[in-house]
Amino acid sequence: MPPSVTLAVTRYRPEQESEPTLQTYEVPFRKDWVVLDALNYIKDNLDGSLSFRWSCRMGVCGSCGMMVNGSPKLTCAAFLSDYLPGPIRVEPLNYFPIIRDLVVDMTDFMHKLKKVKPWIIRAQEKPLADGEYLQTPDQLEMYKQFSMCINCMLCYSACPVYGLEQSFIGPAAIALAQRYNLDSRDEAARERLEILSEHDGMWQCTFVGECSKVCPKNVDPAGAIQQLKLVGAVDWFRFLLPWGTR
């Protein structure tokens, strides 16, 4: 095992620089260290001015997504040992505006999350006194996968459609819509289908499929989008028929 490894890290300080550059740092190598640990080593020992987001260091808070050697990764789950001999390139997530160093602006993503109405919508609410909405394990299984999204945005960074067309609502938001559509307690699938059928919705997706490959939680947003497209297409054909539902 090497005693140390080199990291090439994006630096961008908008108050001083007009565009990002790469800065290299030499950090000790350890078998149990991930890229995030190396960044923390840099911040604590080499350069206190390096900025990045992190919190739980166990792959559930979704803060520490970055590009590692060109691929979107949770840096808390990217071992240095998998990138030997280095240098390891660490950059901010693709396709998002860079605020500073490794920090990207996620305001756009937050707006998109809200746009798909990710909450339970029902015509009639059941009073709490009447207990829970019954939901069998099979019904739970229907949407479970899509409920595992940690909003780390790796899928947006893998999606060239989002890169080319920032208005595209994007993989995670559509998967979240599908999570609620498939929930037996929810009754607003049609409402969300209409939102997703708008110009910036699911039809923008050309099914590159990278979003599902990079997802650290196996949410499979590409699957969600194709399922919704199928529903949308069937819906449209029904509309054409004289005995159609509308």
């Binding site: 908008p14 693709n94 505006p97 860079i98 060239p160 890169g163 080319l164 050309t206 590159v208």
Partner: peptide, 21 residues
């Protein structure tokens, strides 16, 4: 001041799945 990278015309050569796509 937020910096937005331009996408290269050759973006689809960046990784194998993009090429396949």
């Amino acid at each position: 001041k937020w910096y937005r990278r331009r996408m290269s015309v050759w973006w689809w050569l960046q990784n194998r799945s993009y090429v396949y796509f």
